[in-house]
Amino acid sequence: MILDEAWSLSPSVALRPEPFGALAYHFGNRRLTFLKRPEMAAVVRCLAEHPDVRTALVAAGVPESQHAAYADALAGLARTDMIRPRGSTRPEGMPRPDDAGAAR
C-alpha cells in the first residue's frame, strides 16, 4: 500500500505553482501534469520530507477520509514517473515525448 511507503518527487520533475495547485513538468519524458488541488501540490512537494505517504498527507492537511483517493491519484502520478519510491535506482526514463496537449 503506497500510504505506508516512502516516496519523493522524481528528480527530473519541476513544480510550478498555479492558482489551482501546481503544474508538474517532467524534463525526461516531457509530460505536463496538472495537480488540480493546492493540497495535492503540497503533498507532492513534501513527500520527500516524510517517512511515508500517510505522514505527508497529514502534514498537508488532507483529512483521513480522503487518503485512499489521494493514494490513487499518487499512483497515477507514479505511472508517468512524476513521483518515485525513495531509494529507487530506476534509470532516467526517456519515453516518447508528446506535446502535452498544448496548443502548438
Binding site: R16, P17, E18, P19, F20, G21, L23, L32, F34, K36, R37, P38, A100, A102, A103, R104
Partner: peptide, 18 residues
Amino acid sequence: RTGSLVEQFELGLAAPIC
C-alpha cells in the same frame, strides 16, 4: 478552486504553457 481544468485555463495561468 475546484473548477474544471478548462475553467481554470480560461482564468489564466502564472505563466504560459504554450
